[in-house]
Amino acid sequence: MSIVGENRIWQRFLYFYIPLGLFVAFLLMPFYWMFVVSLRPTADLLNRVRNPFLIYSVTLNHYRFLFEDTAFTTWMKNTLIVTVCATLLSLFCAILIGYALGRFQFRMGNFLGAAIFIAYLVPPTLLFIPLAQIISEYQLYNSYWALILTYPTFLIPFASWLLMGYFRTISAELEDAALVDGASRLQAMRQIVLPLAMPGVLSAGIFCFTLAWNEFLYALVFMGTAEMKTIPVGVVSDLIKADTFMWGPLMAAGILGSVPVAIAYSFFVDNYVSGLTAGATKG
């Protein structure tokens, strides 16, 4: 148990249960609200007599509507394809960059590391208009590539920085020994360092996955047709009808849209944290 002296129950309440409870309430309340709205008949929204946070009658109509009357499954598929590809591509680039910055001494190393970080400072609201032009010049408009190639711009910086730190934690001696044994640098990297770095790679991957999954602006402007939309864009454009919001389906989509990422986290949260630990404390 805890090493800090909380032998008394009131202490445990004061320092642990109460603060944790407050955090749970604050952080999960909006999510709980989405859940409530997604399961309740629309008319209940306007009901001022009953407690708005409770569910009195359950309906699955909003979820049914999503699957039957919208292209939700297509949006889900698009989002998955784009997110997985963008994550893999970013990881590939970030592993190489992180390895070079973390394990090699070379001129420009510090400069390039800082430059990647600075790339993070450029706001997407500035980029998306010039990008639209570039996407069109490269003939990528309305294709998965438009997003797969642009998402890494905001995924690579963090992932590279994290992996750079992680590679530094892996003892150099193992690799040196392999080199002495006649392995090439690439072999040593692939067969020795990379397997040891998997927790870090996983952390970076989950991070990338989350950001790519939630992206809105690029997906809005680079995808032109209904069949190519991602979840956030499809939901907003199909479930807000002129000046009326279809609250039930919107919130149902919010819940369903978070499920894949939430599942990934519930499995990998500890790996994510430990990967981050090693990578980040050596940044």
Binding site: F128, Q133, S136, Y141, L220, V221
Partner: peptide
């Protein structure tokens, strides 16, 4: 969307 299309001259 209109702005992006005009800038891209496409779509």
């Amino acid at each position: 969307r209109i702005a992006a299309a005009i800038q891209a001259q496409d779509g």
